[in-house]
Design a protein around this nucleic acid. Sequence first.
RNA 1: GCUGUAGUAGCUCAGUGGUAGAGCGCGUCAUUGGUAAUGACGAGGUCGGGAGUUCAAUCCUCCCCUACAGCACCA
Length: 649
Amino acid sequence: MAQIALTLPDGNSRHYDAGITAGEVAADISKSLGKKAISATVNGAHFDLAWPIEADADIAIHTMADEEQANELVRHDLAHIMARAVQEIWPDTKVTIGPVIKDGWYYDFDRKESFTPEDLGAIEKKMKEIINKRDPVRTEVWDRARAIKHYEDLGEGYKVELIEAIPGDEPLRMYWHGDWQDLCRGPHLQHTGQVPSDAFKLMSIAGAYWRGDSDRAMLQRIYGVAFTGKEKLRAHLNMLEEAAKRDHRKLGREMDLFHMQEEAPGQVFWHPNGWYIYTELQDYMRRQQRKGGYVEVNTPQVVDRKLWEASGHWEKYQENMFIVEVDEEHAREKAVNALKPMNCPCHVQIFNQGMKSYRDLPLRMAEFGSCNRYEPSGALHGIMRVRGFTQDDGHIFCREDQIEEETAIYIEFLRGIYKDLGFENFKVKFSDRPETRSGSDEVWDKAEEALLSATRKAGIEPEMNPGEGAFYGPKLEFVLTDAIGRDWQCGTHQVDFVLPERLDATYVGSDGGKHRPVMLHRATLGSFERFIGILIEEHAGKLPFWLAPRQVVVASITSEADDYVMEVVETLKAAGVRAEADMRNEKINYKVREHSVGKVPVILAVGAREVEEKTVSVRRLGQKQTSVQPLSDVARDLAVEATPPDLRN
RNA sequence: GCUGUAGUAGCUCAGUGGUAGAGCGCGUCAUUGGUAAUGACGAGGUCGGGAGUUCAAUCCUCCCCUACAGCACCA
């Protein structure tokens, strides 16, 4: 029999017969490792202890102490155990797929009756029974025909379809958890008892389309979370509870920032406090854009469908547009308009006025553009995904050879702004051509290459998002996450060769001939609505002082201090600080609590002593200790903090 | 849009086939207090909307609206 050399992480090599399993290697190294081993990494691949190793390789044996591998195995085995539990309780249920995801797993089932939240308890109980049985996990390799026949006989049509969709001709791995069998690429643990029975929890039931296709069957998905130990599960559940407190919908109410109501789904009623944030941000962005060489414009809300037909949006997005029909009495035909769902076609109209020369390029055009989109009801989410919103939109008209430079300039522009707003780290995703698109493949080749190369030159290696581009061009997405870790695209930068063509934008080149400009679509915050939502969750409501809607409350301790309270408020206002007085007949404890809950960053308490000394007692949000300082010093310091970062020296 | 869950006072929630309750908030009065809730009293609800069953519906049935979780979508 052939001999193979396996190299351990410490550099030592051991020699074995080919076909030895990682489990046997572990046992050979030491008896205790043989017992504790759960899996192995063989040449970078995660191996089941039962799989044969056929050639020389680097090998590392894993135990439960290896968090990454242990979590994967525990979660993956739990997916199987849950599917088994469900089929034991409801044998008419069809199984489909059940992958490991962040913090846990899910499994999709097809069953006539719906699972109820109460069922989760029953499933959990059954799962614990299976774990306690310590059933062996067994693996066999079958050829495809046999596997297909097997599933056809069982009536598991989804499994048959899965096998048929797996490319190539390789044999398939079949797993058994006790008597229960599933098609699976593995790896797995050796018996169900290795899964901690107290470190998982079934979280929720939701619908999910088979193969992610909304034209196909709606399955029932059960989500679970799992860890290697009880403490880690508890910590995770605790984290979720904390994250729920940062939810912008909750804080929006508590801080009196905005509300939404049935009559205007997906649209925001901004209250005075929220509008402070909004306008502060807008003022900031306007300054940044002026500094960045943009000209600001403004375009109509209601625009004839002809323009949307010309741009291609009518064809692709008609069902997501608010249609405004005007039936003018003497008009020959009814005018059909749409509320502007985006600004690009309007910006091209401005570009098209008059004759542009290559000397005008790059032309950076910006608009705080209010848009309305009829988003599907299920997509709405607080102020993060809405039907009425305002983008900090901009379009850069430039020559092809300016794409890279403009992209590089833009990435730096965005970076500086995100940094000012407290986002040092953000994801960058690159989305290339989607299936349905405008423009020739040559044009797409050019656009994708230019965008990607500029991004890489900016020192960013984006995450690839194949097929997710806009219909007119590839895009870069700048992604921020909410309190519970969901991704939200905020900034974007897109190359577009198509729209200038469709809307016939031209400029006169140095050769005197007409040329087609390239259009770069870009938004930094994305929309004020979404960005403010993210901002609230990121800071848990404790916004940077300059963005805080209520910056200072001056609270009297006794009514003797009322006159002085007003003096302090006036002094602060004169210094450019948003200050308000609280002279209610309440105890200082009460006032401190109320304004702390309201996330006011600074509370200044004044009583007899402060009146006497012309001082204030300063209390910062989240801090317990206070300090007594001269009013003039405090006014000076807060004036600096109240200044937006781009205006400070 | 799809699957599931939910909608009772401004907020968080309890409750019942015989037209509703708590805490907080709000108002009035008393209290002038030193850094996360002073006390007493009081005012708030056609129980998301519509239809049906019933002597009687906030509660049961159906339809609709909205929200939440996930899926699909996201110019």
